[in-house]
Computed example of a mutant assay.
Amino acid sequence: MAQCLRGKAAAAAAAGVSAPWRRAASASYHHTIQAVPRETSGPRAAARERRHGRVPAVLLTLAGASPGNGVAHRKLLTAERKQLVEMVKQSPYFLSTPVRLQVRAGERSNAVVHSGTVLPIKVHRDESTGHILNLVMVQADEGTMLKVNLPVEFKGESACPGLKKGGFLQKIRTSLVYLCPAEHIPPKIEVDLANLDVGDRVLMHNIPVHPSLKLLSKNETMPVCKILASKPVESETMQDLKS
């Protein structure tokens, strides 16, 4: 059987056709998660998948286009660990970037049983090794409203008047939660510091975003960052706790 498979692979290579489980890295390779169905769950089944170089994954489908309807369906999948590692490495905003998902009937099958756009929402890693253990995705069809934790990125530090005077940038929030239509999810939220002087601050609701995004916060007037006159000194209490 092994000789037969090798023979088929060689024939495919001679014909210029790559076997589906040995596709060469390409642009689509970094934007389409390749997966196959997984029939069993649990620690033992998950450990078996990892031993074979795969990552157990779950695809969640919401009950409706509106938020708060809960999960309608959970689909068990398994993805290639090598590919996921590459995708996470290539995209610093992996958990806020919709990607394509292609589910084939089996590891050595070309038959596609499901395809669509998904949003990775959780990557579980081993605390000691950093290896990816599990992946959770949600179906991100156009029109679906998703709650997304978006990373905050600060830009314009070199032009910031307050920082040029020797001020200190106090970063208060590193992420913000928005309700976003799947088709308008931004990979990040940019905060421009170019016009900020000492004493200035940027509030949550002052950050320009697409009009379809809704900030989910109990207090939208909370600051995301401040330009302080100098770096704050740790309180004696904190120093006591560290000593």
Rank of each mutant, 00 (worst) to 15 (best):
I172Q: 12
R173P: 06
T174E: 14
S175W: 10
S175P: 11
S175K: 13
S175R: 14
S175G: 12
S175Q: 13
L176T: 05
L176A: 08
L176H: 07
L176S: 06
V177C: 14
V177K: 14
Y178G: 09
L179D: 07
L179K: 06
L179T: 06
L179F: 07
C180W: 08
P181A: 12
P181G: 10
A182P: 11
A182W: 14
A182M: 14
H184P: 00
H184C: 08
I185D: 11
I185A: 08
I185E: 10
I185L: 13
P186L: 05
P186T: 04
P186Q: 06
K188I: 08
I189P: 00
E190N: 04
E190M: 09
E190K: 01
E190I: 06
V191Y: 02
V191R: 01
D192P: 01
A194G: 09
A194N: 09
A194Y: 02
N195P: 03
N195Q: 13
L196N: 10
L196G: 10
V198D: 08
V198K: 09
G199M: 05
G199W: 00
G199P: 04
D200Q: 10
R201C: 15
V202G: 00
L203G: 03
L203R: 09
L203T: 04
L203H: 02
M204P: 04
M204C: 15
M204V: 10
H205S: 11
H205N: 14
H205M: 05
H205A: 06
N206T: 06
N206D: 14
I207N: 01
I207D: 00
P208G: 04
P208H: 02
H210K: 07
P211I: 02
P211T: 01
P211H: 03
S212H: 03
S212Q: 07
S212D: 10
S212C: 07
L213E: 00
L213M: 05
L213T: 01
K214Q: 15
K214V: 15
L215K: 01
L215Q: 03
L215W: 03
L216S: 06
S217F: 05
S217E: 07
K218T: 11
N219S: 12
N219E: 09
N219G: 04
N219H: 09
E220A: 15
T221V: 07
M222I: 10
